[in-house]
Amino acid sequence: MTIPLSHYLAVSAALFSIGLFGALTRRSAIIVLIGIEIMMNAANLNLIAFWRYSDGTRATGQLFTFFGITIAAAEVAVGLAIVISVYRLFQSTNVNEISDMKK
């Protein structure tokens, strides 16, 4: 018997919530970025699962995952650039300490 679609959706939902948990609770900015990456990954997994279980001739699912991945890579690049320049100013990547606007 093949794997029902709901299993894939359950896995990506779990992945999404783990990413959300990471982004919310962890203090280091880099782990927040990793959490966001995992959430995006879960979204891509959903896209591909739905493409697979639809009629499969249209390539919308795959292409939008492809665009999703490129955008995630761009986002990580800019995110890390911000994290590093913030680190230069505040000497810490602790999300709570970076709160006041003017140094």
């Binding site: 093949t2 029902p4 679609l5 709901s6 697979r52 279980y53 639809s54 009629d55 499969g56 001739t57």
Partner: peptide
């Protein structure tokens, strides 16, 4: 969702 079967395309 259940009866959606994977197209082997």
């Amino acid at each position: 969702l259940a009866e959606l079967v994977t197209a082997d395309h």
